[in-house]
Design a protein around this nucleic acid. Sequence first.
DNA 1: TTGTATGCGTTATCAA
DNA 2: TTGATAACGCATACAA
Lengths: 336, 336
Amino acid sequence: MIREHVTLKDIAKKLNLSVSTVSRALSDLPIINEETKKKVLLAAKEMDYHPNLFAKFLKTKSSNTIGVVVPDLEMHFFSSCISGMQNTCLENGYNLIICQSNESLEQEKFNIKTLQDSRVDGILISLSRETNSFDHLEQLKDHQIPFVYFDRVHENGPYSQVVINDEESSFEATEYLIHKGYKKIAFLCGPKILSICKNRLMGYQNALRNHQMDFNTDWVLESDLSRASTEVCIDNYLRLNDRPDAILAINDIVAINCIRHLKKKGIKIPKEMAVMGFSNSPVSEVIEPNLTTVEQPSFDMGKLAALRLLEEIRNPNLMSQKIFTLNTKIIERDST
Amino acid sequence: MIREHVTLKDIAKKLNLSVSTVSRALSDLPIINEETKKKVLLAAKEMDYHPNLFAKFLKTKSSNTIGVVVPDLEMHFFSSCISGMQNTCLENGYNLIICQSNESLEQEKFNIKTLQDSRVDGILISLSRETNSFDHLEQLKDHQIPFVYFDRVHENGPYSQVVINDEESSFEATEYLIHKGYKKIAFLCGPKILSICKNRLMGYQNALRNHQMDFNTDWVLESDLSRASTEVCIDNYLRLNDRPDAILAINDIVAINCIRHLKKKGIKIPKEMAVMGFSNSPVSEVIEPNLTTVEQPSFDMGKLAALRLLEEIRNPNLMSQKIFTLNTKIIERDST
DNA sequence: TTGTATGCGTTATCAA
DNA sequence: TTGATAACGCATACAA
């Protein structure tokens, strides 16, 4: 039994009404007879009517779809953000089109173009680690496409953002290590082009300064987030005459690669060297020793970013930039 | 500078051509003058023309979108599948709409309905662990919506599937444990409603039979995949007079929860009890001891499922069921 | 309160 | 080889 899609016309014909009346009844406009409205709603249900969203879009210019670009879907932090977005979007009748930039600027540009072709009503993005130009994003304003950054943001851009307070969180994490008695705290940073990296570095430096702690430029290294790069950094730490006794890593994945490599080199954690991460991903309670980390509310971040975007979609004159800062929490485990 | 979207009409006006000629030129139909075609293509590029996919769909009934339903986006296996699908789909000009069922049948039904409303050209799905009725899926055939299962499939359904050879893989995994010298091998299963669980159980049983090994019904337990449920199972194993000396778990997450709980109970792994998992997720090389596991080619699975779906979309008379079976590989680590 | 007519941007079917 | 015109399904301005 093959059913063609039921249209407004079909319902109208069956009820001896005009298409526009049926349309009005279903859109729940006030100017309509209660009786006819009931009849229409009933018939629509009986006939299993589903509105054709494409025809609707052609009229209204609203696709009911929002686009998401993340660097890597397989990173738990991002899939969790998306989970939160999905939640909010489905509740509000919006679909999600998800793209990965694979940490590449080229791919990111292509993703944005694809999303524009799909006429998404708005875009949520977390930047690739390569992104150092922003034309592909700034042109969105010309096209009046609402746009919200989350996590990896472009701070000077004219768009709203949802972030954690990176500087403060990093400050607190460093302070936590100081209170724990560590004297030589290293910061294993990520690509400084990312604002999260820059800000976390700043928080780290401020904490040291605040406590009149030693600051050694050799202790701040930069990993490109890959395992190999992280291992090179660790080797550099180990070669130093003045070795750090704790490492604050830019995220959990880097922290975990630190731990694995340190263990391979026979370094005892946390006795000889403590390690701390960012994000509280599932692996952090699997690694041994369990990783002390700064919990980022990824699911909520996704939800909030989606909510803000929907708000901007519904209220276009709201286009002014707004920054949402979420709180983090230190999860103490065995690596510190 | 706010640009409205350029349409065929705009191009036609500029070149003093008719809309249909422009349309033909851009669709690369053969019945057209080479000269005009060149002119049109050039103008389109200059004017930054992007076709309105919604208008196109209204005519052609093809949305250039495919829908995906997974139980849990945050499980690495699934995000990796999706990564593979994305790859294939974007290459072929298709977008992906991704939904999560959160392991709930109700939610799964809702997802399918949403995707139908969005008039997706086809659907890729991995079933929720609750799914025991299939009406919401079988009606897709009535609507002629191509449909492919991956990983968690409904075997008797009329649809194509992409799976690993669960029975054989599990057979080999069990045999591997036998060769390693384990004598009392337990199988910690998942919900038997899932075909992957049923088949892996079968492979396990066949291997034992093949080697004239002891088979104890107490050694086959069923976890609902949650941590709590897995821990209950482990406790049951430990209470037995005839304790198993190895556990083959239905997936890595279950296996990892086994290891954590066994360690808490003071059991030495693999000396007192070995543990083996399925899927080779990132955590498996983070847990200690590193988890021996059966690698599932998740990325390729996603790619293949998407490819098959695209094939069925392009060639509707191909609707017969086809089963693709991918090979697995045992990754030997320290837990066995 | 309801119906008629029009257009959104395409593609497809004619005729020229 | 090109152009005029209709149609896809819906929303809406206007008329009744």
